[in-house]
Design a protein around this nucleic acid. Sequence first.
DNA 1: GGAAGCCGGGATAGCGCTTTCCCGTTTCGG
DNA 2: CCGAAACGGGAAAGCGCTATCCCGGCTTCC
Lengths: 363, 363
Amino acid sequence: MPLQGPGQGKRKPRARASSGNPTLTDVAARAGVSLATASRVLNDSDRKVGAEHRARVLRAAAELDYRTDLSAQAMARGSSPVLALLVSSIDDPYFSAIAEGVVSSAHTHGVIVTIAITARDSARELTSVRTIRGQRPRAILVGGSRIAGNPHTDALLAELRAFADSGGRAVFLSQPAGGLGAVRPANAAGARDLGTAIARHGYRRAAVVTGSERLETVTERTEGLRRGLAPLGGGIAVVESDTFDRSGGYRSTRRLIESGRIGGADVLCAGNDFMAVGAMTALRDGGIEPGRDIAVTGFNDIETAADVTPQLTTVRFPLAAIGRRAADLALGADGPPSQDISVPGEVIMRASCPPRDGAVGSG
Amino acid sequence: MPLQGPGQGKRKPRARASSGNPTLTDVAARAGVSLATASRVLNDSDRKVGAEHRARVLRAAAELDYRTDLSAQAMARGSSPVLALLVSSIDDPYFSAIAEGVVSSAHTHGVIVTIAITARDSARELTSVRTIRGQRPRAILVGGSRIAGNPHTDALLAELRAFADSGGRAVFLSQPAGGLGAVRPANAAGARDLGTAIARHGYRRAAVVTGSERLETVTERTEGLRRGLAPLGGGIAVVESDTFDRSGGYRSTRRLIESGRIGGADVLCAGNDFMAVGAMTALRDGGIEPGRDIAVTGFNDIETAADVTPQLTTVRFPLAAIGRRAADLALGADGPPSQDISVPGEVIMRASCPPRDGAVGSG
DNA sequence: GGAAGCCGGGATAGCGCTTTCCCGTTTCGG
DNA sequence: CCGAAACGGGAAAGCGCTATCCCGGCTTCC
């Protein structure tokens, strides 16, 4: 038995799982070339490799069913081809439409998308970003409206900025912050256009049913609406807030009806389509027929909007395009890392908001 | 100038990006302990570490804002904490609901979710799985209905099986195959229950509007419906196929109306809720009032189902729960790796399918 | 004809982490 | 009171890649 110097003993190499995946070393060995050559072939690097060797490597890889280990590649290269998407919920047409665009863009960039949901919980949002940072992604996309007075906002922003400082790219899908760039729906302009459109249809007193005013999206839309109504002498008669979803729309409308405060309004403007749908049901339950007794509008043009009765007037945003554009911005080598891109919406007038007597002509 | 032996020259270490992330080595150095100790503290390993050292490491990590590099960790450990989800589209309430459950389960398991979309393109499905395999994920979840006669099916299955053989777990969210386990809605049973329910409401002749019969989901539902209707003497009068979405529902219904083939039916059963919604619009366009002149049913109970007029009778599946369960199955160390779990649905009778004269009593 | 390139290939440092080994101290059990 | 076991800590061997560096053989070009 050979003597071994102290501390110099050969360790037994960790046992490779018998069913482990083939490695590049295996491929190189089978092809009878060096590791370097195999790597060069499989990544078609700049360095040229002779046709003979190239073919051998390719064949060996195919025979072994070789799959590059992305973790190893990421570590060797120092960056991994992933884009992280952070949204409050993926089970929400708004975000899933954006996600679709993001994934599609990422695909064309050859980048993998990882997804984290925050469930509108700002603490979880923070821990998610922390975890995500561990992935050393190329970019982080943050969806979901910023909430005023959020105790974790500063920490989140610091985290994102640190990420950006270490070479990553962070892009918001809502209001930008911390000099970090954003691609987002032009809520204010869209709401203003909607206000203008309904004013021209003859409506003057709006009842607004929306989410918490601490959501920036909410204030942008409400304010935009006010500005759109004003020129023709219209305005917002009353604002009622609740959760930013269907049931919130139902409940707040119900409260408006029961308290009689809905009386002065000729149009009910909901903060989004879900709220609008809930509001319509509440109206019917209260004996008010939407589209006839009072007009109704929403926001976002979810697919349902065209399927409810009466069809819902709303503002359409190209959500998938927004997602795609955000991913492009985050992944593109070119262009300023931080721009604030507002994507305009389009007012879709439908039966829930018919022209009234006294409406301004189309001229 | 010191002589250097051939091939032994000291390479200049690759320049670390000045703004690079702090490494565990940095943490250990700052804490004045070894790499091993730092690692042990940060992963609370079995090995005990003195309180003093522990505290120093923790403090150093916090001060440096250290974030474990997941790729490096994955490589060192030989496996990465990721679950890959493959769906045809994330912008589809069906899949986004499942995805929500998947992500939520993964979160509690401390696992990251990466997502890939296939756009119902089987070639892309295959390449996606190939890429995914490179991530060496713990598990792969495959959504989307299997399509009969798909040329890439064998390759896909082989790929998944190879993945399973090398220690991963693959779970289908639709029909299982290749002995690989699945968690999925009990389409056949749900459809049968729906058939039974509408038969008891007095309906006998169903017109079915659905997707391609090469989709297994479609055949399962149609067949189940037939079995539910039969005991009370009902049956399927006509089947019309088109794309498995809203416009497909519209078009096929339209064709049924124009050809007069809808005549013999007292209920129109759509393959899913989207098709049902499209069908209702087509009916109205054809002068037939859904819910009054003909009953209508859907499948899945998407949120919209309760918002259309008349409210849609459908079969509800707990999609998020299915996603969660699939992820649990794929990530759980326990349990047989491959089971076929059918999650039952619940018939939701609504106004689109009112009881007819001659309906069977509730007794 | 020899110096000065290309060119295709191989050897091999890391990348940042985990984990095995090994070692000096204590703490016990007998 | 001595040997064994337990304990806390450190050194370093990889994990599977990429990319740098080096080399020998051929062209080129004066």
